[in-house]
Nucleic acid binder design. Structure first.
Lengths: 349, 349
DNA sequence: CTGAAAGCGCTTACAG
DNA sequence: CTGAAAGCGCTTACAG
């Protein structure tokens, strides 16, 4: 027996005394041969341990792998543990899955060991989140489809939400009751690494095409409209959307003397807002009576708890679906802008 | 210009008047040619828009794709939104990434549209979670490495935790204060679909190799040890580890007449426990004074909140790391059993 | 309905 | 240090 090598389509053809084309057709084009012959081939294949045409050879021959890669701006470890990114991925996966494609996960910040090669097996690329450098994009095969999500690549189809409008909407709601000391907690707003108060020393990231600047603008618009001098509203910044990184910054905010402690926190993410909520609860600060908190994202964790988080929901799953449908050519490649929705919870009624 | 087709290694070789082997070596084996020549090739490649050897052809030729597939028992959508599965995946991704491999996500419950083919491109497979049928496993190429996580495949290396010991440990802790009316909330314990009370009508899943039976045994051991008649402890069951599915079952439990309402809930997952906590808070039931709650898993969401969840932590990230290291051959293929750790939170002090 | 043949784009001994 | 040649395992017009 030829147990040593893995059986190939050619081996099977010889074994059954038919041509390789017929075997291939039995697996790929049922209409090209008689049902009886097809049955026989499939049965014999199973018996002899041939589990179907090899995907590597098939993809080389056809030029298509049925694999779509998602390139994540952050590390895979971070992204998989972030609710917003996970929801996005699940939207992508759902559509790919429904159309016989699979999902390859690629980290944006390439490890040194990463050879440029193994990524370009994909038929298309979805790039998610801000891309710090464009090196990776250069390396992407030029002919392949590319869809950018949450940031812009020149001349590339994109899926976005209107961050400025969404943050304006939530801030406007929060200001239905005028705060004495509002504060804004940003996510990656400064060029320099900064976990704490944003001061004159810090440079803000460029105005265009960064999510944080767009959201800040929405907050500022709503505040100005209410006659608040935005220059007086303290800005805090957080570099990473995790409890561990948020926690010390928020502790610093909440542990200020009472007369300086904010009574409204406009947070740029639900993770930040939830961390603020936890820390407030631990300190016995009553929410919303003494401290009103708003989030941004609408992740499940903020809604399936008491008190529920007041926030603005972006449809991350929907974003993933749209991006996947574009890549698969099921909807036109275009610039899509998705709607957001106010979620009126208990932390800022 | 040959702008029509994508440029190939052969095109580049002709353009530069060297052999294809030299181009290949320039990209893959720097030691096989002079630095000067290599520099020239790389520079010209960039100029002409050749972004390196095609991964499809390379993987066919070498027989390796540097892709590892994770087959998830549940749908991708569910798994990506489940904290335990996400942590597991992030452990896998971390190790793969560090060794120049990438992660392909495959749903276990195959869609009809899914051709058997496109999965077998992977060099190895990590199968995560209970496998309902073995059809998929049959289709996996026989020669490829396989690692099973959280369940057994005959003759296959596995990564496990000791569920019985872990649940014994948490239940034993919970029983430091003897409950009047303990209850157990299981996850997929019954053969029949059951979201609610488990009755004599229901058949329990087979004793061997299901996580839920193993955990139930641990709970029962601890209860028996305290002289509790386990036959009198009500069993409830939940089919899916999501707030939406947990919520109505737990509402039913908590809305019983006060004299029947449990004062201790031993939950088989943190998601169940957190849902119980939220619903108790909404009803003004004081935790832990009137109701003690324990979880299982140790997900971040249970620890970064007030009150903190009392639970037992399984190292899901570590599980992923070990599985990935086995697949890559960096540690021996074996049966690994990972440690668990009691997390003493506020919901069951 | 079936078969012979070309070729997808590489890598790798091997000879020079 | 470099080049000629074989072949990885398929799919697909095309001819019969």
């Amino acid at each position: 027996m030829t147990d040593q090598r893995r059986m190939t389509l050619k081996d099977l053809a010889q074994e059954l005394n038919v041509s390789t084309a017929t075997i291939s057709n039995a697996f790929n084009r049922p209409d090209q041969l008689s049902p009886a012959l097809r049955e026989r081939i499939l049965k014999e294949a199973k018996r002899l341990g041939y589990s179907g045409p090899d995907a590597k050879a098939r993809s080389l021959r056809t030029g298509r792998s049925r694999i779509i890669a998602v390139i994540l701006a952050e590390s895979l470890t971070y992204s998989l543990n972030d609710a917003v990114a996970s929801e996005f991925l699940s939207g992508v996966a759902e559509v790919l899955d429904a159309h016989g494609h699979t999902l390859l996960l690629l980290p944006g910040r390439g490890h040194a060991s990463q050879p440029p090669g193994s990524a370009n097996i994909a038929d298309g690329f979805i790039v998610y989140g801000l891309m710090p450098n464009n090196k990776l994009l250069d390396e992407l095969p030029a002919q392949r489809t590319l869809v950018a999500v949450d940031f812009d690549i020149e001349g590339c189809p994109t899926v976005h939400i209107d961050d400025t409008a969404a943050s304006y909407k939530i801030a406007q709601h929060a200001l239905n009751q005028l705060p004495k000391r509002p504060a804004i907690i940003n996510l990656r707003l400064t060029k320099e690494v900064c976990n704490g108060r944003v001061t004159a020393e810090h440079t803000l990231l460029p105005n265009t095409s960064t999510i944080s600047r767009a959201r800040l603008e929405g907050f500022h618009n709503a505040l100005s409209e209410q006659g608040v001098d935005v220059a007086q509203v303290p800005l805090w910044n957080i570099e990473e959307n995790t409890f561990e990184v948020c926690s010390p910054v928020i502790a610093e905010i909440l542990d200020q003397p009472l007369e300086q402690r904010p009574d409204l926190l406009l947070c740029m993410s639900d993770r930040i807002a939830l961390t603020a909520l936890t820390l407030a609860e631990q300190r016995g600060i009553r929410v919303p009576e003494e401290l009103r908190i708003t989030g941004f994202d609408g992740i499940a964790e903020g809604q399936y708890r008491a008190p529920r988080l007041t926030t603005v929901r972006q449809d991350s799953v929907g974003k993933g679906r749209v991006a996947a449908q574009m890549i698969l050519g099921r909807i036109p490649l275009a610039q899509q802008l998705l709607q957001t929705e106010l979620l009126l919870g208990d932390t800022c009624p």
